[in-house]
Design a protein around this nucleic acid. Sequence first.
DNA 1: TTTAAATGTAGAAACAATTCTACAACCTCA
DNA 2: TGAGGTTGTAGAATTGTTTCTACATTTAAA
Lengths: 212, 212
Amino acid sequence: MKTTQPLSFLIADDHSIVRQGVAMIIKELFFKPKIFLAGTFKETLDIVHQNGIDLLVLDINFPDGNSLKILEEIKKIQPELKIMIFTAYDEDIYALRYLNAGATGYLNKGCSEDEMKNALNSMVLYGKYITQNIKDKILDSYISKKPINPLESLSSREIEVARLFIKGYGNMEIAETLNIKKSTVSTFKNRIFEKLEINNIAELIEFFNLYG
Amino acid sequence: MKTTQPLSFLIADDHSIVRQGVAMIIKELFFKPKIFLAGTFKETLDIVHQNGIDLLVLDINFPDGNSLKILEEIKKIQPELKIMIFTAYDEDIYALRYLNAGATGYLNKGCSEDEMKNALNSMVLYGKYITQNIKDKILDSYISKKPINPLESLSSREIEVARLFIKGYGNMEIAETLNIKKSTVSTFKNRIFEKLEINNIAELIEFFNLYG
DNA sequence: TTTAAATGTAGAAACAATTCTACAACCTCA
DNA sequence: TGAGGTTGTAGAATTGTTTCTACATTTAAA
């Protein structure tokens, strides 16, 4: 490393074990790094606010907040912050969403230690890290013009409705929750089912287990 | 620690970061521990086979094998091996299953470092660790004489119907499939929901994912 | 061995979801 | 810049689901 000034890292993950592990690797890899740890959405934002963070390693699976929202909020505070998503979801499908939302790196928790080091290094040096796999997916989807994740064909309102169905809400409950008519909910349901080519809530749940 | 001989640990988790983190804590906590690491079902079994392991810290979320099966297999090799399940599933509901299957400890990954240390210590000293929460559940089920697996309270016909609901069938389809009236199906549905104390198909699916 | 609970089955009334249609607002690509 | 798709929204008619009640049969418990 050329860097002579110590770098600041923030590791945001709801599992203390994971925070420990990442911290250890960062300590091995960089010269006197400043390391901050956060276990919640709120802590993460606070720390980003108060400290000049260079690299944020972020699991987007917090108990207290929607994952994409975190990215948005952080981008408001410090738009050029380097963010590497580090998460356990096996499917790279997620990656694109987060990259779109402003992350510049994506690493799966199933990675090896070497990959982790590689990724951290690359993030610090070039501000980005994506695996070949994900690059390929981006290319493919660009060429075929089809969204990689079928859920991406849903509008945000449709996703909102879908999530409520998955929670087990009925049409009426959803209508009340969203302050729309139940017939509207039905229309959404139909569109969702059409787009995903499914026929019932059970399959919808399946879908979200896979992709969402 | 009274123990003078070094203890052998096996940390089986598909995330290297988690393995690292746990290993570090074990190193802090015990005197010259031997630490083995496994990232797959197969590796886990191999290492248990070849080395005299004292404590296995096991995430049951392997890509290459069913979670309960692992426990069975391990028990075959070394029946008295101390096994602590260490997993990310938030619901303690899982715990009982694994305890029944032969694990003697259960810890959630969302735990703090102190809890982790506590748990490891307890496993090494007494061979077991369960949180108060889970103890309460076991007691409750004993006192109320309700089965820990609520599915056992369903009659076979009810299970038959439940499975069809889970497949995404509606009342009518089920009625046709089973050659009964749709009102009958409704009655079954109601009884199932009552027995399992749930309110919708989404929860039913959840239930069968957990217990069925 | 009676008695109580659980099981498998429905009808009818009340209620909820689906279907089909429609429309305005927005977006987009040629 | 305008024609055609997408999105967010509903009404009305139809269809499906729930609720409540009921009853004969089987099973378990006192």
